[in-house]
Amino acid sequence: MSQSLEHSFVEQLETNQNIVHKVCRLYTNNQDAHNDLFQEITIQLWKAFPKFRGDSKFSTWMYRVALNTAITLYRKKKRRIKTQEFDSIEFKIKAVEYDDTEEQQLKLLYNAVQELNDIEKALVFLYLEDKNYKEISETMGISEVNARVKMNRIKTKLKTILNP
């Protein structure tokens, strides 16, 4: 592939790398796995890049490839450790402007999201990224109504996890 294509791709991914980091944050729970998934997503994005026509934004296109890689294509090298490692240095939730209660609540919330299954995590991710139900349903391949229903169920599930 031509050098200009490479250059254009790497530059755009460098600018939008946080999308990939966020997907990795949801689907992995330690730094090694995070890096590993980041790399696989990058490879998949690069492989698909020649067909990227630019009729959608690069970032929009990235959501789909990144999620598909995390949910479907990625083959974990090691068995996923069940214990939550969300407090690792890299992911430490900083409580700059939050009081203790809110910080604590957030920690619990992140842990609760970590307990959701892969599909639920994808819906939560798109929701947190401010995607509307049309985009969510198109990305996942389900109907808009069902995406909405599922999202409500996830909210209830999170409530149950937080207040057993």
């Binding site: 460098e14 790398q17 696989e40 998949q44 690069w46 890689t69 294509l73 083959r75 090298k77």
Partner: peptide
């Protein structure tokens, strides 16, 4: 934050997808 070079190195690696 990954640098341009970090990302460039990644695209040269082989995929291990299912």
């Amino acid at each position: 934050k990954l640098s341009y070079d970090d990302i460039y190195k990644m695209i040269l690696k082989k995929s291990s997808s299912i």
